[in-house]
Design a protein around this nucleic acid. Sequence first.
DNA 1: CACTATGTTGGTTG
DNA 2: TCAACCAACATAGT
Length: 274
Amino acid sequence: MPELPEVETIRKTLQRFVIGKTIASIQVHWPKIIKSPDDSEIFKQILCGQTIQAIRRKGKYLLFDLEDYTLVSHLRMEGKYSVDDTNDPIKKHTHVIFAFTNGQELRYNDVRKFGTMHVLNKGEEMKQKPLIQLGPDPFDAEFSFAYFYEKLKKTNRVIKAVLLDQTVVAGLGNIYVDETLFKAGVHPLRKANKLTKTEARAIQQQAIITLEEAVKQGGTTIRSYVNGQGEMGLFQQQLFVYGQENTPCKNCGKAIVKLKVGGRGTHVCMTCQK
DNA sequence: CACTATGTTGGTTG
DNA sequence: TCAACCAACATAGT
């Protein structure tokens, strides 16, 4: 259930194995994952013969650069990639298989089948759905304090909802929003347009710091996330609030509370977050 | 067995 | 414009 640090870790591990590999054939066992082209048969046809040149990331999306196309992949809750040998047994929830000319395969596995793939003409991927709707990646210069503060000023939603909104900033999900707000000392139910400049700055900075640190740790594994080599992340050891309900706050000792904000489980320290 | 939760997001409704 | 709810789907926990 990857957020930015998990997707970035997958990108880095995967690129070591698939760059320069040429797609010889493709199997699609759950066509609903393929969102464009509409027909998964066309998806298979146009990608055969294409060589992977690079893997990029924007927010929580992986972008596979091919010669004529870009494959835009979102893992949603449970999507995983692995690189296997043709003879390796196929797992139960493997839905898309890209077989390379060298006998290896890039396999997409997704227990809940929520993940999506779009194939778009090379160079046009940023100009259309799904990427066109995304706000800046938090590691981009575009995610400046001026930009962020303006966004906060003109919405009366609660701050947690704003941080989860991928059109504002692309890459934060439930774990890292809760962690960011804890470190910034801001309660998730605060109205975005009522935050002080100092609070807004703390949120912006802590978001970047938290994501950077999580990337260094290879992401967070709560129950199922693994990178492109099947390895777990380590950032769960550094969580302050996410999944820590009824345990003492590492800062003040008071029990972490779990509540619902915008339908999402939300973890907060009532004394440290105002 | 029933019911809830889950790292996401898109659509519908009021 | 936005919150609330549901949908997509499978599994694990209570």
